Simulated scan of single mutants.
Amino acid sequence: MKKLAIASAAALLATSLPAQAGPHGHGRYYGPPVEHHHHHLHRAAPLAWLLGGIALGSALVAIMPPRPVVAAPAVVVAPPPPLPPRTAWFCQSYQAYYPNVPYCPEGWQPVTVY
């Protein structure tokens, strides 16, 4: 299928090129300009090149494989680790915590705070 598309595009491009024959049909004409000779092919040459380029570009796009679709990786957010328990020191006689009370006569009681 690819070879057929390339061959048809090349044939279309080759037939769109202007002819290189002289006024008598063989070779280029290197003599003085002849008044009755009209150069219609030169006016049509840009159009032929444009159409040939469009045909060739279309054929090349048609035979190209599609681009792969790459999906973005999923974003996974892990929950933060739990905070370790902390220990606060409580004084029963003053009903307060250290460092608000610098001294406790009966001793400090450890209290776990989350």
Rank of each mutant, 00 (worst) to 15 (best):
A5P: 05
A72W: 14
V111A: 04
H39Q: 13
A14R: 05
A78Y: 13
V34G: 00
A96W: 00
P66L: 07
H40C: 03
Q109P: 04
P82N: 05
A78R: 15
L41M: 13
N100H: 14
A45R: 02
E106V: 12
P32Q: 08
P85D: 08
Q109H: 13
P81C: 02
V69W: 13
L17N: 02
P99Q: 02
P84F: 03
T112Y: 01
Q95I: 07
A10V: 13
A7Y: 10
A10R: 00
A62T: 04
P66W: 03
Y29W: 15
H38L: 12
P68M: 05
A96Y: 06
Y94R: 07
G31N: 06
L17V: 06
P79D: 09
T15K: 06
P79L: 06
G22D: 04
F90W: 14
Q95C: 00
L60I: 10
A19D: 13
K2N: 11
S8A: 15
A88S: 10
G53F: 02
Y29M: 07
T87H: 08
M1T: 13
L17A: 12
A48N: 10
P84K: 07
G31Y: 09
P68I: 04
P65C: 05
P66R: 07
G22N: 05
V75H: 11
A59D: 02
H36E: 15
G31W: 13
A96F: 04
K2D: 03
A21Y: 09
Y98P: 00
Q95E: 10
I63N: 02
H42G: 15
P85K: 12
A96G: 06
A14S: 09
H40V: 12
I6R: 10
P81S: 06
A74V: 14
I63W: 00
P73E: 15
P18Y: 06
A72H: 12
P46C: 04
P102N: 09
V76I: 15
V69P: 01
H39N: 15
P32Y: 06
G53W: 09
L60P: 04
G107K: 04
I54G: 00
L83G: 02
P18W: 01
P18Q: 00
L51M: 14
R86Y: 05
A55W: 07
L4A: 14
G27E: 00
S16E: 02
A19T: 12
T112D: 03
P81R: 03
S58A: 15
W49A: 09
P65F: 06
E35Q: 10
A45D: 11
P23L: 00
A5Q: 02
A45Y: 04
S8D: 00
A48K: 11
Q92V: 08
P99S: 06
L60C: 12
K3I: 11
H24E: 11
P33N: 11
P99Y: 04
H40A: 13
A19Q: 08
R28P: 09
V70P: 01
L41G: 15
M1R: 15
